[in-house]
Amino acid sequence: MAPRETAAGAAREDRRAFFTRLFWGLAGLLGALVGVPVLGAFLSPGFRKPEKAQWTVIGPADRFTEEPSLAHHVHPAHEGWVNVTGEMQVWVVRDPQGAYKIFDNHCTHLGCPFHWEAADKRFFCPCHNGVFGADGRVLSGPPPRPLDYYESKIEGGILYMGALRRGGT
């Protein structure tokens, strides 16, 4: 092969390598410039800080006994662009020591609503036969932890609920 052709061939290869690098560099840059905002927005809910729970009135504290009972309350919530007020239900029980427990009414297994079976003195979740005691402890079935509960306080004889806590904490 004549030297001239070899030089031309090398120049062609250089050019090819340059354009290959240029192409992939530009493709990566464009992908990042468009991809980062798009991915960031898609993952946006993951960056949001949970809203601070406010103390919500449940009712007169002496209404509740050692027998768990359902309490309804209107819960104002801000979801996305909608202001909704949802009616929520919680189980309220006063333990023998006189402390109040406010249980979230979703089973800690897969979130089914459960009910109180007065005859057997137990909370029973019909989805997968999860059973909890009146104190929220798991008695049998698949639930991985005691019932989730809300912080509570009493002011002027009125029971308030606060932030949701994981069962067992």
């Binding site: 468009v34 980062v36 798009v38 960056f47 996305g80 662009w81 909608v82």
Partner: peptide, 29 residues
């Protein structure tokens, strides 16, 4: 961009404007 915008948009006269405001104030990027 349209796909992610559509995820945060409500096509109703009651909510459309507010959902766009939501995109502008609450959504990362």
């Amino acid at each position: 961009t349209g796909i992610v915008l559509a995820m945060n948009y409500a096509p109703s006269p009651e909510h459309a404007y507010d959902s766009v405001t939501y995109i502008m104030t609450q959504i990362v990027f």
